[in-house]
Computed example of a mutant assay.
Amino acid sequence: MKDRRTFIKQAGLAGLAGFVPINPLLASDFKEDKSANNEVSDAKWPDGSRLVVSVSMQFEAGGQPVNAESPFPQNMQKGFIDLPGESWYQYGYKEGIPRMLDNWDKFGIKVTSHMVGSAVLKNPELAKEIVQRGHEAAAHGMDWATQYSMPYETEKKFIKDGADAIKKVTGFEPVGYNANWLRRGTNTLEILQELGFKYHIDDLSRDEPFLLKVKGNDFVVVPYTIRCNDIVLVEGKNFSADQFARQVIMEFDQLYIESEKKRRQMSISFHDRIGGTPQMVAATTQILSYIQKHKGVSFRRKDEIAQMAYQDKNIIRE
C-alpha cells in the first residue's frame, strides 16, 4: 500500500488526465519512474539517516520567578517565599543537568539545550560546560515572562537579551528559539528572522521539519513535542519513570515503521529539575539503549536538523 504522501502526489497527477491525454508510454513511465513518487528520496534524510531523533534539555532553573509553579500546593501567603519550591528548582542546576550531561556522554549523543538567559547568568559555568561538551545552546527568552502579549520592540529586546546572555557566557551564538510554554506571539517569527535566528520549535503540527516563508525568506520549523515531554507527562500527569519510558519507546516504534516510507523526526524533551532525577535518567538509559539498537537512527542537535532542512530539496514548504 502506498503512503499518503505518494497517494496525494499520484492523485494530483492522475487528476490532470481529464485535461491532458496520457499516452501508453507516459502511463507506463509514471508507474515505473521512481522519481515520480520519490518514495526512497523522500524517506531518507540528506545525511542518509532513516530516522532522526532530537533531544531537548531545558536549562531554566535559576531563571524562574519568585514562587513559580512547583510540585507543592500553590497556596503561599502573600509576602512569603516558597523555600522548598526554590530548592526543587535548585536541583535542576545542582544535580539534574550534570547527571544528564554524563548520560549523554555515555551514549555519545549531542542534544539541544534551550537556555533561559537569566538562568545562564546565574550559573555561567554550567552553561559553558554544556557547550564545551558539544551540545547546542538555543535561546529560551531572557526569563519566564509572557512574550506573546508584548509589543514588537519589547519582545524583540526580550529575545535578544536572552540570546546575548548565552553568547556572552558561552561564546555560542544561538540560532534556534523556544518560547515559554511554546506560546509565541504573532510578531515572534518576524522578530526571530530579523535577529538572525534560523529556526524555531514552537510547533506541534508535524513529525518532520518544514519551511515557512517569513518576511519573504525561508525559516525552518523543527517540531517539538508534548507527547514525549517530562514536564507534561511526569510533572503534569504524574507518570512514573517506567510509564514515561514505555510511552517514548512506543512512539519510537511507530515512527521507525513509518520512516521506511517517509521522512520522520522524533523529539524527546527533558527539563533540568525533572529529567535529571536518578529515576528519569535510568528511564532515559532504557530509552536510548533501545533506540540505538535500531539501524539507520541518528541523534541530531536541532541546529543540525535546521541546516539539513535548508539544504534539502525534498523539504515540505508551507
Rank of each mutant, 00 (worst) to 15 (best):
D3I: 06
T6D: 08
A11H: 02
G12Q: 10
L13F: 10
L13Q: 11
I22T: 10
S28Y: 15
D29R: 15
K31E: 14
E32K: 13
D33H: 01
S35R: 08
A36P: 00
A36D: 04
V40M: 13
S41T: 15
S41H: 04
S41V: 14
P46Q: 02
G48N: 08
S49F: 03
S54D: 12
E60R: 00
E60W: 01
Q64E: 15
N67I: 04
E69Y: 11
P84S: 08
P84T: 12
G85L: 06
E86I: 06
W88I: 08
Y89H: 12
Y89N: 10
Q90H: 13
Q90V: 08
K94W: 06
E95V: 09
P98F: 12
R99Y: 11
W104V: 03
D105C: 01
F107E: 04
G108T: 06
V111N: 07
T112D: 07
S113P: 01
H114S: 14
V116F: 00
V120C: 10
K122Q: 07
N123H: 15
N123C: 10
L126A: 05
A127W: 00
I130Q: 05
Q132E: 12
R133V: 11
H135V: 01
W144G: 09
W144N: 09
A145K: 13
Q147W: 00
S149F: 10
K156H: 03
K157C: 01
F158I: 09
A163P: 09
V175F: 08
G176V: 10
R183G: 09
R184E: 12
G185L: 08
E194R: 07
G196H: 04
K198C: 01
K198H: 02
Y199W: 13
H200L: 00
D202L: 06
L204N: 07
D207G: 04
L211K: 11
V214G: 00
K215A: 14
G216I: 01
V220F: 00
V221N: 07
T225H: 05
R227S: 12
N229I: 08
D230S: 05
I231S: 12
K237V: 04
F239P: 00
F239I: 04
S240G: 05
Q243C: 00
Q243E: 15
A245G: 06
R246S: 14
D253N: 15
E258L: 15
E260Y: 11
E260G: 02
K261M: 09
K262A: 09
Q265H: 10
M266E: 07
S267R: 04
I268P: 00
G276H: 02
G276M: 09
M280H: 07
M280S: 01
M280Y: 12
I291L: 00
Q292F: 00
K295Q: 13
V297E: 02
F299I: 09
R301L: 10
R301A: 02
D303Q: 06
E304K: 12
Y310I: 11
D312Q: 01
N314A: 09
E318D: 10
